[in-house]
């Protein structure tokens, strides 16, 4: 069906990050990741091991940057809301990052992210489409 077995790691990380940021963790199906990346399901499993492994690869790549992009802040929100309570690996990763941040800056950024995603700041009319 034209799906790839080999791929550019950085491109696929970006594509997967966009999917997780858009649908959240539980809301992302492997089918969504296969469709967004064009990579064979088996190849994704071979490289990342699991959906959680895919998310951790995305979050790690984002956190590795000196300053966090809008996309990375969304992934941080997803990690905090959906994964850090149940996943030991995600909790370890996000705690390690948090301990090196200024707590007030993190609070402000997370609050701003929630408001940005809510659509209320721009008075947007919900159209049923994900941004």
């Amino acid at each position: 069906m034209g799906r790839k077995t080999s791929f550019d790691h950085d491109v696929v990380i970006l594509q997967m990050s966009q999917v997780f940021a858009r649908f959240g963790y539980a809301g992302t199906a492997l089918d969504d990741i296969v469709a967004a990346t064009g990579v064979l399901r088996g190849s994704l499993y071979r490289v990342f091991g699991s959906k959680q492994g895919m998310f951790i690869a995305c979050l790690s790549a984002g956190l590795a940057n000196q300053s966090q992009s809008e996309l990375t802040w969304r992934l941080i929100l997803v990690a905090l809301l959906e994964l850090s309570q149940t996943s030991l690996a995600v909790q370890t990763l996000i705690r390690g990052w948090y301990n090196e941040q200024d707590a007030t800056t993190v609070l402000t950024q997370l609050g701003q992210q929630i408001l940005n995603q809510s659509g209320i700041l721009k008075g947007e009319i919900p159209d049923g489409k994900h941004s």
Binding site: A29, R41, S50, Q52, G53
Partner: peptide, 13 residues
Amino acid sequence: VVGASIDAGILKE
């Protein structure tokens, strides 16, 4: 063991 996932779509492949 590398990892585990829920994957509803795998049965359609």
